[in-house]
């Protein structure tokens, strides 16, 4: 496990920043450059690492990440060199909640958003492809974590994540990190029928 690289992945607004924060509080060394400052969308920070976006052209920094955790959007997972071993915590969230949250973020950034129906279809297909691809990678172990489960039962979910990391994370401070008040864009319970994963 000490030689493995921990990656928190998923689509934007699926809870990846929360998971990074949890790992940080749980004692897992996290890699972030803090270039992206906290804002309305992520008041506790983004926990991002700029060089992750450049992995297609330069992955030479990856070995230095052994034993540490960083955040990587799902589409970039395809670029991970097979020469390393990874443990991926893959965040899952109701697609409509995620898209609603992304639309708000894009509006705030002054960027256009794809029509919700179209991006929902594209995300669904993308997630199916990435799950199938991950399942075929012998050097990648994956744990799926649903954002809604994390908020509903932080203690149990934190214990599950700590077990996945061979006990390298302390579940108590991880669970204490979860603040249900930050679960915005929540779909009403009665209509939540399409949880992914």
């Amino acid at each position: 496990m000490a030689d493995e690289i921990i990656i928190v992945s998923g689509l934007p607004r699926s809870g990846t920043s929360l998971m990074m924060q949890m790992l940080d509080r749980g004692g897992v060394p996290v890699a972030t450059d803090n270039l992206r400052a906290p804002d309305t969308d992520n008041p506790r920070g983004y926990y991002e690492l700029e060089q992750v976006k450049k992995i297609k052209h330069d992955a030479s920094w990856l070995p230095s990440m052994r034993g540490r955790a960083f955040k990587m959007v799902s589409q970039l997972l395809y670029e991970l060199p097979s020469s390393q071993r990874y443990r991926v915590i893959f965040m899952e969230r109701d697609l409509d909640e995620m898209i609603a949250s992304q639309e708000k973020m894009l509006a705030r950034l002054g960027k256009p958003a794809a029509p919700a129906d179209q991006i929902r279809h594209l995300f669904t297909q993308h997630l199916e492809r990435i799950r199938a691809w991950l399942a075929d990678q012998p050097n990648i172990a994956v744990l799926s974590v649903r954002y809604s489960d994390l908020v509903a039962d932080p203690a149990d979910e934190s214990a599950r994540i700590a077990a996945f990391l061979d006990g390298r994370a302390d579940p108590a401070p991880m669970a204490a990190t979860v603040d249900a008040s930050l679960y915005r864009n929540r779909k009403p319970e009665a209509t939540r029928t399409d949880l992914v994963g």
Binding site: L11, P12, R36, K53, K54, V73, Q75, L76, Q102, M105, L106, L109, K111, P112, A113, A114, Q118, I119, L122, F123, Q125, H126, R129
Partner: peptide, 20 residues
């Protein structure tokens, strides 16, 4: 088709600042 779909996903992710 997959390339086109992933490119469309990239556009959304780029807007959000997650890919270059």
């Amino acid at each position: 088709k997959v390339e086109q779909d992933e490119a469309a996903v990239s556009d959304q992710l780029r807007g959000l600042g997650y890919v270059e």
